[in-house]
Design a protein around this nucleic acid. Structure first.
Lengths: 122, 122, 122, 122
DNA sequence: GTGGTCTAGACCACA
DNA sequence: GTGGTCTAGACCACC
């Protein structure tokens, strides 16, 4: 897992996204014990607080659960929750782009052809 | 023009976006003298510097030009520059959404059908 | 004579440069009475003060002289003074560019070849 | 680094230029953490906003990137971006001088010999 | 601690 | 009057 400091995306979101992706793909199956915030922080060269924020966000989304004194584990329905998260994020992005474009006078036809062009490019 | 302090979008970007939109639609035709930074600041209840940042951003994008002692004017090709800006923004948004989705295992077919659904909803 | 408000060059300098050029070419021969600041200002759609600043600058450079109550005239050696001004301006520009480049690690050889390339382009 | 308030060059441009030069020469290698805007402002006896403007300009040119809560760092391709900036600036200066001279009746031959003379002087 | 944004004043060159 | 620059504070999100 690598963090990109130049992307403008906060570290804690990058960590959250990377773990969510591993949970979605099954690289981290349900029940798996995540590294402790301390170890994770050392491994990523970030602060403990940053990792904690990421774990909290994952827990809020139902991808993991934590137990006082034991650690943080991938939830039973973690992969499913991760997929729901992908859908929700995508829904938000596309809706925003559509509304944005409409508000600025781009017709749906233009928007459609523009998008289909993007899908064909690699 | 109204500013929304709860949106999380900086004031200077909101001002920039609102003026860019008026230039794009022709509500502010080329050659028009914009309100001075001071007047605009008073009208919007923000600081002079905030308005200045917005005007600077518009000038950097070629939508307006300003001259010491005279004021800030809508550029000759201002509306065109505004349309280019819309296109560039839309391009960035759609590309990001596409790459995002692909990286998370959404197939192009799914993405396409999802997008077409969005276009049909109001 | 046309003024370009988008160039960033103050109006009074644009007026000064335009008149200096007409004096240099002989379009305004020595002894010619320049339009009054009031007429010139009306013709150029600028303020009287702006024209006055331009006339003052020309007088300081020896291109024109003014007589209280009579007006402003092209000086006897006006064309010559204009040519000297061109040389002085050019000297300043080239020296600045050279020093600038040297201070930033551009070798004289690079600078030379770069400049010769520019001279060959239209 | 010293600021010259008599030069007529805005502080934020002086700061920008000084840092760009240090990045170009490698005195500030890529990855280096720049002094925080607050520290830099104290050291130079200017306001925080002035330093911020300089840092913003450097970031717009790709010489540095900044991240909330971490600081401002010299970009990976910072030195390269600095060299490109030098080239672009020089290009603009030389082109302007050439066009200026041509418009005022200086032949390319005169211009060439004048320039070569300058290059030989220290 | 950091950068990102904002305020309410100010002086200057230009018109 | 205008824009261009600057100051000395301030609150917020992030680390």
């Amino acid at each position: 897992m690598k963090l990109d400091p130049t992307s403008g995306i906060p570290f804690y979101r990058q960590v959250e996204a990377a773990l969510a992706e591993q949970i979605r793909t099954g690289a981290l199956p349900s029940g798996t014990l995540l590294p402790s915030v301390r170890l994770q922080a050392e491994a990523l060269l970030v602060s403990v607080i940053t990792v904690k924020q990421a774990y909290d966000a994952l827990e809020a989304g139902g991808l993991v659960y934590s137990q006082q004194g034991r650690g943080t584990f991938v939830a039973e329905r973690g992969a499913e929750a991760a997929r729901e998260k992908v859908r929700a994020d995508l829904h938000r992005e596309l809706t925003a782009a559509r509304d944005h474009a409409r508000a600025r006078g781009v017709t749906d036809d233009e928007l459609k052809s523009l998008f289909l062009t993007f899908l064909e490019s690699p």
